[in-house]
């Protein structure tokens, strides 16, 4: 039997790895799934009739499936990124994602005050993901499915699991290939974000230059026959208040300029949606917002096919 030690070694390893994969908490492989999701987002060459842009409030807050269900099935894609801003490169990226041959052409922009700041307009995450090397793309896109079987533990975590003292992860997350990150906390804490959101606008106020770039693209797109819709993603009231006081964002003035550039603004009430951390909608609210957005867009653009 032990003449063929090498195959036996790998067989025994598989006999441990496969059951362990199914017994483990899915959140153990969250890091791998997250990397695969982001690489998938930037390497997806398909174009869509409806494209969503923005930051984490959009990629957590908009479910394309629930949008499509109320939008006559026109395919939608969530192309938002972490702490994202409306920089030139990203706006071009949004345009490239749109299927301009479709009879429905809609770009939906989630406008958070932070997305209009100079820091956000560096588009650091977007540029980092789009600039990744081929090896990382291959690894995260294809090899990661095998890698999920072999997610490492760290010693304290392993000790906690073996002793039964570790608690399950509060954070539950599912990455969808349509760009939505379905998120929730088992125990929500809507005051969580406000604790570190205080400093986000220190020497980083909403910038007229960033707004100008966004509006130039808006005017360009509406001139090309593309419907450009804007909305402010709902948050907890504490975050909204913080943004009103510290960000330098004048929503009324922005909406006027946005409409003058040809955009369609859709307001949403904070009361109608819940967040899990103050900043990001939980899964139920995200699904509801997506459906509401589809219905409201149809009402605002009645001549859409």
């Amino acid at each position: 039997m032990l003449k063929r030690r090498i195959p036996y070694l790998f067989l025994l390893t598989a006999l441990v790895a496969i059951p362990l994969y199914f017994l483990r908490d899915k959140m153990d492989s969250e890091e791998i799934r997250k990397k695969r999701y982001w690489i998938g987002k930037v390497t997806n060459k398909k174009q869509y009739p409806v494209v969503f842009g923005g930051d984490s409030r959009v990629f957590r807050g908009i479910s394309p499936d629930h949008f499509e269900a109320e939008f006559d099935g026109y395919e939608a894609y969530n192309y938002a990124f972490w702490s994202n801003g409306y920089c030139h490169a990203y706006l071009e990226g949004l345009e490239n994602k749109l299927d301009t041959a479709s009879d429905v052409k809609v770009i939906v922009l989630g406008i958070s005050p932070h997305s209009l700041t100079p820091n956000a307009a560096r588009c650091a995450h977007y540029l980092w993901e789009t600039g990744k090397k081929k090896e990382e793309v291959l690894q995260n896109l294809y090899f990661s499915r095998v890698e999920e079987f072999f997610v490492p533990y760290d010693l304290p975590e392993l000790a906690g699991k073996l002793s039964g003292k570790s608690k399950p992860d509060n954070y539950r997350i599912t990455y969808h290939t349509n760009g939505w990150v379905e998120s929730s906390w088992i125990v929500p804490d809507t005051g969580y974000s406000a604790r570190f959101y205080e400093d986000i606008f220190t020497e980083n106020k909403v910038s007229d230059e960033v707004i100008g770039e966004l509006l130039r693209f808006t005017a360009r797109w509406t001139g090309m026959g593309i419907h450009v819709v804007g909305f402010r993603p709902p948050t907890a009231w504490s975050i909204w208040k913080l943004e009103q006081e510290k960000s330098g964002f004048n929503e009324t003035a922005f909406v006027d300029r946005f409409k003058a550039a040809g955009g369609i603004w859709i307001p949403f009430s904070l009361r109608d949606y819940q967040t899990f951390d103050g900043n990001h909608l939980d899964r139920q609210s995200a699904m509801r917002l997506s459906a509401d957005l589809a219905i409201r867009i149809r009402q605002q653009i009645p001549d859409l096919p």
Partner: peptide, 21 residues
């Protein structure tokens, strides 16, 4: 001893997989 050798290497390999930094 051959079985022990196999077990020793299995433990090392599993450590490489599940305890890697």
């Amino acid at each position: 001893r051959r079985a022990a050798d196999l077990l020793y290497l299995l433990i090392m390999l599993l450590a490489c997989i599940y305890l890697r930094g």
